[in-house]
Amino acid sequence: MRIAIRLAVLAPLVALLLAACAPAPIYQTPPGTVAATPMQVAQTPERYARANVIWGGTVVSVKNLTNDTEIEVLAFPLDSSQRPRLKGNAAGRFIAVLPGYVESLNYPQGSPITVSGTLNGSRAGTVGQAPYVFPLVKVTQSHRWTADEMQRGHPNIHFGVGMGVGIR
Rank of each mutant, 00 (worst) to 15 (best):
I3R: 13
A8G: 13
A11K: 05
A11V: 14
V14H: 01
A15F: 02
A22Y: 11
P23L: 13
P25Q: 07
T29H: 04
T29C: 04
T33P: 08
T33Q: 12
A35H: 14
Q40I: 07
V41L: 01
R50P: 03
G56D: 09
G56S: 06
T58R: 00
V59C: 07
V60A: 08
L65C: 05
N67Y: 01
D68I: 12
I71D: 13
F76E: 02
P77M: 08
D79W: 03
Q82F: 05
P84W: 15
K87V: 04
G88W: 15
A90Q: 09
A90G: 03
A90W: 01
F94P: 04
F94W: 14
P99T: 15
G100F: 12
Y101A: 08
L105D: 13
P108F: 06
Q109K: 08
Q109I: 10
S111D: 03
S116R: 09
T118Y: 10
T118P: 09
N120W: 13
S122D: 02
A124Y: 00
G125C: 08
V127N: 00
Q129K: 15
V133N: 14
F134Y: 13
L136H: 00
T140D: 11
S142Q: 06
R144S: 04
R144A: 03
R144Q: 03
D148A: 10
M150T: 05
R152I: 10
I157K: 15
F159T: 11
G166M: 12
R168G: 01
R168S: 01
